[in-house]
């Protein structure tokens, strides 16, 4: 496709489909007929009925639409890139990070800083791991590059805090050991949100 179609700014000549609207009334008599028919057709009462029906739905059939946000939260899509989480191995409970340093390397805003050392078993151990959330742009490269699925983007999107440091230490991001059984495996970037089925709705123009 060439660029011609994009450069055509003449909106008047494009292939819009015109709805078959009735013509506006011309003579006074036609206008009067329109007014009379609109007055005596119960169109206005259809509007009243729609609102009343919605009220009945909301009050008695449990179709209230409000999510009372701080008290209840909607599940968040796995595609959303919120504050990072460090996951643990499910069997041993040890953290998954092997200290390879790929995330530090790939971070385009240079916000990940890590220090590693060898422990007594000659196994790499993470001694320092911080993410500077003043710099982080939540691009998601760190999670993508991680070979062990150790660092992922979690669901903590309420970022307001008095101190950035309260998000950014390794211990803060690590799954607490007593909540290991609640740890969610990362679905991957293409995954659909867990409540996707509920979100599918009929177009609300049924009336």
């Amino acid at each position: 496709m060439g660029l011609e179609k994009f450069k055509n700014r003449n909106v008047g000549t494009q292939n819009y489909k015109k709805l078959d609207l009735t013509h506006p009334p011309k003579s006074g008599w036609c206008r009067f007929k329109q007014v009379a028919s609109r007055t005596f057709k119960p169109e206005l009462f259809v509007g009243l009925w729609v609102t009343l029906r919605e009220m009945i739905n909301a009050l008695f059939r449990g179709k209230m639409h409000t999510t009372q946000y701080p008290l209840e939260k909607l599940p968040i899509s796995p595609r959303y890139r919120a504050i990072h989480e460090m996951l643990r191995l499910l069997e041993s409970g040890h953290y998954r990070c092997i200290g390879c340093g790929l995330c530090e390397k790939i971070c385009i805003s240079n916000c990940i800083a890590m220090e590693t050392r060898y422990d007594e078993n000659q196994r790499k151990e993470v001694s320092e791991y911080t993410i500077n959330f003043g710099r982080c742009i939540f691009c998601g490269y760190c999670a993508e590059v991680c070979p062990e699925l150790a660092i992922v983007h979690g669901g903590r999107y309420e970022n307001a805090s008095e101190q950035r440091a309260s998000f950014s230490l390794f211990e803060d991001m690590l799954t607490p050991i007593d909540k290991l059984n609640l740890q969610q495996e990362y679905q991957g970037f293409g995954a659909i949100s867990p409540n996707a089925d509920d979100n599918i709705k009929k177009t609300p123009l049924a009336y």
């Binding site: 609102t51 919605e54 009220m55 909301a58 009050l59 179709k63 209230m64 639409h65 409000t66 009372q68």
Partner: peptide, 13 residues
Amino acid sequence: KVLAFMQRRVGPN
């Protein structure tokens, strides 16, 4: 409250 119910909201609560 009534306007909220008619729009399927909760209103002040």
